[in-house]
Design a protein around this nucleic acid. Sequence first.
DNA 1: TAGGCCATCTGGTCCT
DNA 2: AGGACCAGATGGCCTA
Length: 356
Amino acid sequence: MTKSYTEQTMMSSEPQDSATWTDECQRSQNEQDMEKNNGALESMHGGLEDDDEDGLNRLDEDDEEEEEEEEEEEGDDQKPKRRGPKKKKMTKARMQRFKMRRHKANARERNRMHGLNDALESLRKVVPCYSKTQKLSKIETLRLAKNYIWALSEILRSGKSPDVISFVQALCRGLSQPTTNLVAGCLQLNPRTFLPEQTQEIPSHMQPASASFAAHPYSYQTPGLPSPPYGTMDSSHVFHVKPHSYGSALEPFFETALPLTDCTSPSFDGPLSPPLSVNGNFSFKHEPSSEFEKNYAFTMHYQAAAGLAGPQGHGPIYPSSAPRCEIPMENIMSYEGHTHHERVMNAQLNAIFHES
DNA sequence: TAGGCCATCTGGTCCT
DNA sequence: AGGACCAGATGGCCTA
């Protein structure tokens, strides 16, 4: 039984505070924590007395009449005399109240952050490539969500369905290398495939159909990003480039797939990979054979994007005769697991395409 | 071991 | 006054 990251962190992190708190045990835990943190708080108090105790001394001025001694550093001629309210000593009672307030504020902040994380987790589930085991980082989740929204908007705006390469390009813009590889993995697509410079080498029939998907209409620079892999689709950080052939660039996805923009091509008769279900969900079809597939269980569920609208018939990119494939992995959140609201949203998108 | 990611604590600021 | 929000600091875990 493995502990979640959160649990591990909670158990091991230095401030033993209370991620494990429940409302019931919060009080006793509070007291324990206060004991533990006493030393730190005391020292902090010392520092505050020396530097700036405005905050602290403003807090409790009601009682503590018993210790009204004002602190004056008489001996220090160097320091200019302090202005403003005279300081009060931090008495035990005041200290206790301060600690209490601090603990309450900490608990609130913790809850707030948990709520934020819950929301982020919800976002992870509705963004392509959701995996319980291989979670996207917060920042990557936000970036991918932004790209996803942009891509869906673009579909709505243009009324055309993108080809997979363009769509993945749009999704991966600005993502780090691992996430880019992850998204590519979702599609069983070699990341090199959708690199701008490499796509130029792809024969015309496999070129992205919608130019608008190949590049955002606005600059997609992400200035100030912490490390080079962010904010660029430069191939130098995606699959550390080695000489490749066109064939390898398209492996394994396009080996058997029909030209992306032509769902009705009669040339199609091979098995589809990756499988895209009738409603557009991507999923692996087979028992994971490669290490990659064993380790990463994803699902693509951009139904509204990739699958909703075919060029003419508003059908999925792949023919409905394509084998519907599922991953029998319990850690995958299937599209069916989405909320009613999400399904309604997709139904509405579907309706839009069918009406257009 | 460095770097990335994360949870938590903390003090400041703003709002109700 | 108290709560929400924010950003900086800190330390732990994980991975390349």
